[in-house]
């Protein structure tokens, strides 16, 4: 299991390769990567500032990953979340799940993303040309997370 909270960028292909290294039993690799999106129609976003709770963040990601491992037949996984100042188009988050079969890999990948969005202590602030504001929690994220309960 690879869990990382980091300022540096990640390479999706490299992380997948690392997880599969020296294994011949993996038939499925699912990856999700999220990047900084400018939602404003007039392209106002300069950057996102990602704050987190050092210590608790790693613990909560590990707990979520362990839940995924107990719920689905998966062989290994990686969760990487970036923090600090990120420009539009930059990577924010990566989830990779490897498994013998795709069904479990897909489900676990989706579960990991849904859960980390509602349970891991990260906060986003948008830095725009017109000022700064904290991103509001979305109820659709809560609902997406609750469907796994």
């Amino acid at each position: 299991m690879l869990i990382s909270v980091q300022t540096e960028d990640f390479d999706v292909t490299e992380v997948s390769r690392q997880l599969c290294k020296n294994r011949q039993d993996i038939g499925a690799i699912t990856t999700f990567s999220g990047q900084v999106r400018d939602k404003s129609p007039d392209r106002n976003l300069l950057a996102l500032e990602l704050e987190h709770y050092p210590g608790m963040t790693e613990k909560s990601l590990t707990a979520i990953a362990e839940q995924a491992q107990s719920r689905w037949d998966i062989d290994d996984l990686a969760v990487i979340h970036r923090v600090g100042r990120l420009a539009p188009g930059e990577n924010i988050v990566l989830v990779v799940v490897i498994s013998a079969h795709r069904k479990d890999a897909f489900a676990a990948c989706e579960f990991l993303m849904d859960y980390l969005k509602t349970q891991a202590p990260f906060w986003k602030k948008e830095i725009t040309k017109n000022g700064e504001h904290w991103v509001e929690f979305k109820d659709s994220d809560r609902q997406a997370s609750e469907r796994w309960d």
Binding site: P121, F122, W134, V135, F137, D141
Partner: peptide, 10 residues
Amino acid sequence: IAFFPPVTGG
């Protein structure tokens, strides 16, 4: 003990 607003990662 930590207090914080709803989380918005991912």
